[in-house]
């Protein structure tokens, strides 16, 4: 009996410690922006809004959030559109060596936007005149995300029965009508997943924009965050915490919105 009680106590203590690891940073993020002189400790805030005023006065903070939105939404749109078409084709047309191709692309993609290809990518961007261009950055980020997106969506497309499309085809629907009327509505939850994943990926990407955008006015929030220092070279915790909070809000909102709108799947229509 004593052993059991001790075991339970140990178990809950372990869980409490693990939970603390996750909750303390979040508590800090919630409390520090409202504290007039934040430190690395979690303290009860004195509910001042001076830090928000300071961020609004910062010349690049708010524009950088807009840049982040632009980059991530642009990339998400491109990735969803292209990966949907590619995944549909790969799922429905038999190609010799299709799976090998997909795995190779998946493997290579982790290198493309990764640190390893930094130098060649930079040179390529310079040669193509895509340096310091948000469009160029969107193209490169999309290129990095596409293989994984195609891979995930193809799985999704594979699991939707062909008879829906064949049925529409017998009724005389054209390939474009089939995609618009049948395929896209059926895989909408999958498309939403890819979009959210792409946005979150770009939103948190530091290296690529840091490398390819030199104009501070074009840089996204992840890069601007890196510049928030005091004159003494210390991390400016007032600005960092407040900006960190603003930086995380859009992503949280997006998850809530998408989960409410697409967080369900259609059932029925196909008798199993």
């Amino acid at each position: 009996m004593t052993r059991f009680v001790l075991g339970r106590i140990g178990f809950y203590t372990l869980i409490a410690v693990l939970l603390a690891f996750f909750t303390i940073p979040l508590l800090w993020l919630a409390a520090a922006p409202l504290t007039s002189d934040p430190t690395y400790e979690v303290r009860v805030p004195d509910f001042t809004f001076d830090n928000f005023q300071a961020i609004l006065d910062h010349p690049y903070a708010l524009p950088s959030l807009y840049n982040s939105l632009l980059l991530s939404i642009g990339t998400a749109l491109l990735v969803v559109a292209l990966s949907a078409l590619a995944a549909y084709a790969l799922s429905r047309v038999r190609l010799p060596g299709r799976d090998a191709l997909l795995y190779a692309l998946l493997l290579l993609s982790s290198i493309i936007t990764g640190t390893a290809a930094m130098v060649p990518l930079f040179q390529l961007a310079v040669e193509l005149g895509l340096i310091d261009s948000q469009l160029g950055l969107i193209l490169i980020l999309s290129g990095g995300l596409l293989p994984a997106a195609i891979f995930m969506l193809k799985d999704f497309m594979d699991s939707t029965p062909k008879s829906y499309e064949e049925s529409a085809r017998v009724f005389g629907a054209s390939p474009l009508q089939i995609v618009a009327h049948v395929v896209v509505p059926l895989v909408r939850p999958g498309l939403a997943t890819i979009a959210v994943w792409a946005v979150a990926n770009v939103w948190g990407n530091f290296l690529m924009p840091y490398l390819l955008l030199s104009d501070v006015e074009k840089q996204p929030a992840a890069v601007i965050m890196y510049t928030l220092y005091t004159e003494g070279g210390q991390a400016n915790l007032r600005l960092l915490s407040t900006f960190g909070l603003l930086y995380s809000i859009p992503v949280v909102l997006m998850y809530l919105f998408v989960s409410k709108k697409y967080g369900f799947r259609f059932h029925g229509g196909i008798k199993r």
């Binding site: 008879s163 064949e166 049925s167 017998v170 629907a173 009327h181 229509g269 196909i270």
Partner: peptide, 19 residues
């Protein structure tokens, strides 16, 4: 093409559009 044959088909799984 199937659409031009003036036929209609019921599939084994019915293939009703779920949306």
């Amino acid at each position: 093409q199937p659409g031009g044959r003036d036929i209609a088909m019921v599939f084994q799984d019915y293939a009703l559009f779920p949306h």
